[in-house]
C-alpha cells in the first residue's frame, strides 16, 4: 500500500496547471481531494509520474447561486456543500445526497469536481448531476467548454473530458420552487458505495430520474422521467429497469440488484412526491 514515486506540483492558477498537464501528457494527473486517486496510487493501479495538486487554485473554489443557476467550483468539498445553507435551500437534493456519501472525514476532503470527473460508476454525484441536468465546465489549452452531465459519461472511468482538460465548475439549474426531490440509497454500511441509489426530481413541468452503481456509467432515463411526469410510476420503474445493467459483486447477484433498484427507486419517488408542493 505504498505508491510509486512521482513529482509534485501545486500550481497557483489554471493556466499553469494545464501547462503541466500538456508538458507531461498521460504521465500527469490532477488531484483534488485525492480520496479516489490516492488509494489507486497506493495499490499501484494508477500509474503517474506527475501529480498536480489543485488546492491552491482559487478559481476552483466557491459556491454561487445566481439567475437560476447554482455554480459550484470543482474544488468544493462535500462538507462545504452540506454546510452551505443557501445551496441547501435552493437545491435540497444535493445536501440529501452528499450526506449519504462516504464518511465525515472523506466528505471534508472529497470534492464535487473529483466525484463527478473521475468516472467511477460507484460515485453518487454523477447520477445526481444527470438528474439535475447539470453542466460541467472544462478548461483546456483550447479554452473552456461545457458538457452536459448527461453526455459526459462514456464508460467506467472514461468521460468526455480529455486528459489535457481540467473540470473547473459544475453549473446546476435551480429547480423550480415546490419541486419534489429525493435521494435514496441502499448501502451495506457507512462508507460503502451504493447497492442501488436513485435521484428523483418531480416538478410541475416534468420529472427527472437517475440511478447510481447499476451500470458502468450513471443511468439517466428520459423515458423514466417522462413516465413519472405523467404520473406513471410503474412505467418509470420499468423504463429504469430496462436501462440499468448491474454486475454481480460482494453486494449481491444481479437479480437482487435489479429488485432493489426498483424498490429504492419507488422509495425515492414516494419521498419526492410527498415533498412536492
Amino acid at each position: 500500500m505504498i505508491p510509486a514515486g512521482f513529482e509534485y506540483h501545486r500550481p497557483a492558477d489554471l493556466a499553469s496547471a494545464v501547462d503541466i498537464l500538456r508538458a507531461h501528457g498521460d504521465e500527469a494527473r490532477v488531484v483534488a481531494g485525492g480520496h479516489s486517486l490516492i488509494p489507486m496510487m497506493k495499490l499501484r493501479m494508477a500509474d503517474l509520474r506527475h501529480l498536480i495538486d489543485l488546492q491552491a487554485i482559487g478559481a476552483l473554489k466557491g459556491i454561487t447561486i445566481a439567475e437560476g443557476t447554482a455554480t459550484l467550483g470543482a474544488m468544493t468539498t462535500q462538507h462545504e456543500l452540506i454546510e452551505n445553507a443557501d445551496l441547501a435551500a435552493a437545491i435540497p437534493l444535493l445536501r440529501e445526497a452528499a450526506l449519504q456519501i462516504a464518511d465525515p472525514q472523506v466528505r471534508y476532503m472529497g470534492t464535487v469536481g473529483g466525484n463527478v470527473a473521475n468516472g467511477d460508476p460507484g460515485n453518487d454525484m454523477p447520477g445526481l448531476m444527470q438528474c439535475l441536468d447539470a453542466r460541467f465546465e472544462l478548461y483546456g489549452a483550447e479554452g473552456t467548454r461545457q458538457v452536459a452531465a448527461r453526455d459526459f459519461y462514456e464508460a467506467a472511468y472514461f468521460t468526455a473530458r480529455s486528459d489535457l482538460e481540467i473540470l473547473t465548475k459544475i453549473l446546476i439549474p435551480v429547480p423550480a420552487s415546490g419541486t419534489g426531490y429525493a435521494y435514496a440509497k441502499q448501502k451495506r454500511k457507512i462508507g460503502d458505495y451504493a447497492t442501488a441509489a436513485a435521484a428523483v426530481l418531480i416538478g410541475s413541468d416534468g420529472a427527472s430520474v437517475a440511478m447510481t452503481n447499476l451500470s458502468d456509467t450513471p443511468v439517466w432515463s428520459e423515458e423514466a422521467g417522462t413516465a413519472l411526469a405523467s404520473g406513471d410510476i410503474e412505467g418509470c420503474v420499468a423504463a429504469m429497469l430496462a436501462a440499468i445493467d448491474p454486475q454481480e459483486d460482494m453486494r449481491g447477484p444481479i437479480a437482487f440488484k435489479k429488485h432493489v433498484a426498483a424498490v429504492i427507486l419507488r422509495r425515492a419517488i414516494d419521498s419526492a412526491l410527498s415533498r412536492r408542493a
Binding site: 441502499q186 451495506r188 447497492t195 453486494r251 449481491g252 447477484p253 437479480a255 437482487f256 429488485h259 432493489v260
Partner: peptide, 16 residues
Amino acid sequence: HDHWRIWKIAEDLGLH
C-alpha cells in the same frame, strides 16, 4: 445475513 442473502430468503419463500 447480509442484505442480499436475507433478500434471497424472502425471494425463495415467495415473499416478493
